[in-house]
Amino acid sequence: MEFMDGGTLSDVLRAVYLEEGQIGAVCRECLQGLRFLHSRQVIHRDVKSGNVLVGMDGSVKLADFGLCAQLSRERSKRSSRVGTPSWMAPQVVRGEAYGPKVDIWSLGIMGLEMVEGEAPYQREARLRVFELIERNGPPQTAEPQAPLGSPARLPAVLPAGRRGQALVCPGTAAASICDLRRSCLQPGCSDHLSQASAGRMERTRLRLRKTPCPATERSGEGHACSSV
């Protein structure tokens, strides 16, 4: 099995915000992986940053195929509620018949995750997440007016002298991701992780304020769940 020495995309997102070109590079590589799976009638069903691996050479790989489903002529759809709550498509949440397109929804949620630092409703309890996905439809960014990579979107994530350095896109996808991952491993970045987490909690609170709802129990990050 190939060793990816850069860790997961989730590790990167806990350290820095991504620049637009870097987000595009990750999405392109993931789409290539999904095209391969879908051409063979396979649904991944758990696309998220924790299942995307990066290498120090700038490579990006889709991983964790434990929840994949093989489609066939006799069974061209699936209906099991499988995946990680915040990244699940509405059809999966409702237990409706679905096909490979649910992976595209999950990739879109991962795109929002790369922009915001965490997935929509990620801090909510599992059943609450299902309710919000069904009721709200496609989620939106909390601050759509702020350009990606601008100081307004980088509160306390990196030291002031390194904010530009970690978010510069050198021109190629591989170099961009490679430089990004190396910048995450440089001294000083870890000192700001707790401040970054506080900022993400505040953005989550502002996002949920736009959708009034009864108070529910809060929980940690969602984990994979399934029901046949």
Results as ranks from 00 to 15, higher is better:
residue 5 D to L: 08
residue 6 G to P: 00
residue 10 S to R: 13
residue 11 D to W: 03
residue 12 V to C: 05
residue 12 V to A: 10
residue 14 R to W: 08
residue 23 I to V: 13
residue 25 A to E: 08
residue 26 V to P: 01
residue 29 E to C: 06
residue 32 Q to S: 08
residue 36 F to G: 03
residue 39 S to C: 06
residue 41 Q to E: 14
residue 43 I to R: 00
residue 45 R to I: 07
residue 53 L to M: 14
residue 55 G to E: 07
residue 58 G to C: 04
residue 60 V to F: 01
residue 61 K to N: 08
residue 62 L to P: 00
residue 67 L to R: 04
residue 68 C to H: 05
residue 68 C to M: 11
residue 71 L to Y: 05
residue 72 S to Q: 02
residue 81 R to T: 11
residue 84 T to V: 07
residue 90 P to S: 12
residue 93 V to E: 04
residue 93 V to C: 05
residue 95 G to E: 09
residue 96 E to S: 13
residue 99 G to F: 03
residue 102 V to R: 04
residue 102 V to S: 02
residue 104 I to N: 00
residue 105 W to T: 09
residue 107 L to N: 00
residue 108 G to L: 11
residue 111 G to R: 06
residue 112 L to K: 09
residue 117 G to K: 02
residue 120 P to W: 07
residue 125 A to P: 01
residue 125 A to I: 03
residue 127 L to P: 01
residue 131 E to A: 15
residue 134 E to P: 00
residue 137 G to N: 08
residue 139 P to S: 05
residue 145 Q to Y: 12
residue 146 A to S: 12
residue 147 P to F: 06
residue 149 G to C: 08
residue 153 R to Q: 09
residue 155 P to L: 10
residue 157 V to D: 04
residue 160 A to E: 14
residue 161 G to I: 04
residue 163 R to C: 10
residue 171 G to P: 01
residue 172 T to C: 03
residue 174 A to I: 04
residue 181 R to W: 03
residue 184 C to R: 06
residue 191 D to W: 03
residue 193 L to V: 15
residue 202 E to V: 12
residue 216 T to S: 13
residue 218 R to W: 15
residue 221 E to C: 15
